[in-house]
Design a protein around this nucleic acid. Sequence first.
DNA 1: ATAGATGCAAAGAGTTTGCATAGGT
DNA 2: ACCTATGCAAACTCTTTGCATCTAT
Lengths: 130, 130
Amino acid sequence: MPYTTQQKVALTRVLQRAERPLTPMEICRAGKKEIPRLGIATVYRALKQLVEEGGCGSWRSREPRRTTNQRERQHHHFFFCRHCRHVYNLVGCVHGVGGLAPAGFAVEGHEIVLYGECAECGGKTQGVVA
Amino acid sequence: MPYTTQQKVALTRVLQRAERPLTPMEICRAGKKEIPRLGIATVYRALKQLVEEGGCGSWRSREPRRTTNQRERQHHHFFFCRHCRHVYNLVGCVHGVGGLAPAGFAVEGHEIVLYGECAECGGKTQGVVA
DNA sequence: ATAGATGCAAAGAGTTTGCATAGGT
DNA sequence: ACCTATGCAAACTCTTTGCATCTAT
């Protein structure tokens, strides 16, 4: 039942065009080029909707969070359940991750986050998927 | 010249013991068990220091940010430069990432973030490293 | 016509900063 | 002793919410 409004269309377009994660503020600013009266609240509301629907692009908050970089304490990554919003630890790691960086870039650490639904929520949500 | 205070020692311990990313608030709460008068500002200041020194564990803000999940638009990841705080796009991806999740977990997407220093900052920082 | 969305402004919540005091070297 | 860190509270900034109005269906 969500309506397809001009705002959402414009914001989706902005997100798809971006080739890096934008902050809500940046998204709003970009959206105003199409819809001058676009409010920041609408951006937040739209983003939330988009996530819940599992669609669209990516964005970031003002700062990159999750400043991970364990001094090789115990290397592990995380799984974020979209449903219960819990963070689970993962064991293991994949190789060659550092190779993604361009030449000249010093990779000091990395982080992998998986998104989806945890085993517990898997059952509850059946049928709720769009 | 940073001093080794009880607070920092305690906070480092908290971070190392945690087996998942904690929020600053959670870190503070945990730290108070050792240092009752521990203030939230100290936690933030300590965390900032730890990142700058490139040490310690990981934590998160109240919510997992970077809610990525491109409807397979163009899969790419990012490099975050600790120095200039810029976000760079990376091309390519590694395989087998989804395999990290435990059985029963539905992986809908993933994100990889590399941390370090970009080529531009690489030069400037020479010698500043501890 | 009706349910949902928007914009604005106010309220919440998280983070940062100023300053006097306490603590480390 | 000197310089840094801490705790507290105020200041900021980002995010969410209430409400009257507007829009998509």
